[in-house]
């Protein structure tokens, strides 16, 4: 069964139309976080960091909940399945639409943050640390998305989501207490050290692997249920 990319495109556009307000909301909240981050006070810096982290986490999980889990709970899936769509097209469209929603918010925040770090009082040496945390969020998102695509279960998705969120604090603490990261926190020197390269490579490989596995598994299905 070959995939009809026109069908995939129609399903992606449908999800974008349904959730464009949500994307706009996250981008707007991201702008607020960036504004606070750029303000020269320690408390606004921390507030900005928390808002940006929250926006990136929420954008991903909200996208998964709205497009995959809610579609099943609201019983709109049978409507889509009644159309000339095959399981592979449906799974591919869900993955792409979801990643599109998440990465719109994520890329906006990350690009703006890099620009902000490079052009304001914020020490440039923080950039590898920031990027590592942002990439951890990408990996977490990809794992939850894969679980949601494969199980379509609210329970399993929330369980994975909570588990990965619990890991976020230890990851931040471990990175912040590692001299390779913290020794550059107050300098304007950006050092792409081996720990950063290794950790982001591992996270990207893990993200890619789980998404690839989920897509291969789902696109091989002959039936929806």
């Amino acid at each position: 069964m070959s995939i009809d990319f026109r069908t995939v495109k129609q399903l992606i556009i449908k999800d974008w139309q349904l959730h464009r307000n949500m994307i706009a909301g996250y981008v707007a909240t991201g702008i607020l976080g960036l504004a606070l981050l750029g303000y020269p006070h320690l408390w606004t810096f921390y507030m900005g960091c928390i808002i940006l982290l929250t926006v990136m986490i929420a954008a991903g999980f909200h996208a998964i909940t709205a497009t995959i889990i809610a579609e099943k709970k609201d019983q709109t899936t049978p409507f889509i399945l009644s159309l000339p769509v095959q399981p592979a097209e449906y799974a591919l469209a869900k993955a792409v639409a979801n990643m599109g929603i998440f990465f719109t918010a994520w890329l906006f925040i990350v690009i703006s943050m890099v620009f902000l770090v490079m052009t304001t009082h914020i020490p440039n040496g923080l950039l590898p640390f920031f990027l590592a945390i942002c990439l951890f969020l990408v990996m977490s998102y990809c794992i939850v998305l894969s679980v949601a695509l494969m199980t379509e279960s609210e329970g399993w998705s929330i369980f994975t989501m909570v588990l990965l969120n619990l890991l976020l604090n230890p990851v931040i603490m471990l990175a912040a207490n590692n001299p390779l990261y913290y020794s550059h926190f107050k300098t304007d020197t950006i050092v792409w050290h081996s720990l950063f390269i290794t950790s982001i490579t591992l996270m990207l490989v893990a993200a890619l692997a789980v998404i690839t596995f989920a897509l291969i598994r789902q696109t091989r299905r002959r039936t929806f249920i």
Binding site: D74, Q75, T76, P78, S82
Partner: peptide
């Protein structure tokens, strides 16, 4: 053309 009792449309559209 297929319609089932458990089929719902998108409520906000």
């Amino acid at each position: 053309g297929f319609a089932s009792e458990d089929m719902r449309l998108y409520k906000y559209q």
